[in-house]
């Protein structure tokens, strides 16, 4: 946790993550989906600075990114878990720095983050459908009920099961792939920078 405690100003570079998520250059997308910038920043930071720092910065990043999106789902648990996991991995010898390893870790991290969001939406959908089914009687008035259409179910906002299975999987795959492709280049540079600046550099 040397970077975070001795040079906390470096953690301010995490502010680039929400700014990049907002700027989201159109040419740096796959099927219109931007890479997961949080994973690309958190992976080298956690590998260099350990599990506590990784989890803490994961918490901070998650709070910042959640602020940009309206809705009930959160990225905090997945980012904290990833920060902790990658931090523990970075403490073990030999240090992870090969392009393939970084790409693979970014791929797993991006997939885990996406799956955590999908699970939250699926749960919200499940609870929403149950609630709507209870409301169906009074809401679905005589004509609509006779035709078998339940407007309470149609009006439920958020990702539905069938949306997640269609467009959701597409977004997950595209984001995972573009993040994994960028990770070797971006994470290697950051890893080098953080290890040189911190005292966690191991030869």
């Amino acid at each position: 946790m040397e970077l975070l405690t001795r040079q906390p100003r470096l953690a301010a570079t995490a502010l680039l993550v929400p700014l990049l998520a907002l700027a989201s250059p159109g040419w740096l997308t796959l099927d219109g989906v931007a890479p997961c910038w949080a994973v690309l920043w958190l992976l080298p930071w956690a590998l260099s600075d350990g599990p506590v720092s990784g989890a803490f910065t994961g918490l901070g990043l998650g709070l910042l990114l959640d602020g940009l999106h309206a809705g009930a789902v959160t990225q905090v648990p997945a980012l904290m878990l990833l920060g902790w996991w990658w931090g523990r991995m970075g403490r073990r010898a030999p240090p992870i720095q090969r392009s393939f390893s970084l790409g693979l870790l970014a791929l797993l991290g991006s997939a885990l983050l996406g799956i955590s969001l999908m699970l939250q939406w699926a749960l919200l959908d499940w609870f929403g459908v149950r609630e709507a089914a209870q409301l169906a009687g009074p809401v679905a008035g005589s004509t609509l009920e006779r035709h078998g259409v339940n407007p309470a179910l149609l009006a439920l906002p958020g990702w539905r099961w069938d949306d997640l299975a269609g467009a959701g999987v597409q977004v997950l795959l595209a984001q995972t792939l573009i993040t994994a492709l960028l990770a070797p280049m971006l994470c290697s540079l950051q890893l080098l920078l953080w290890r040189q600046l911190g005292s966690g550099w191991r030869r």
Binding site: L64, G67, A70
Partner: peptide, 17 residues
């Protein structure tokens, strides 16, 4: 401060951007 940013729906962050 981060919790405040989260609760304000990214007010400071979006304005800074």
């Amino acid at each position: 401060a981060l919790v405040a940013v989260r609760l304000s729906k990214g007010a400071v962050l979006a304005d800074a951007y």
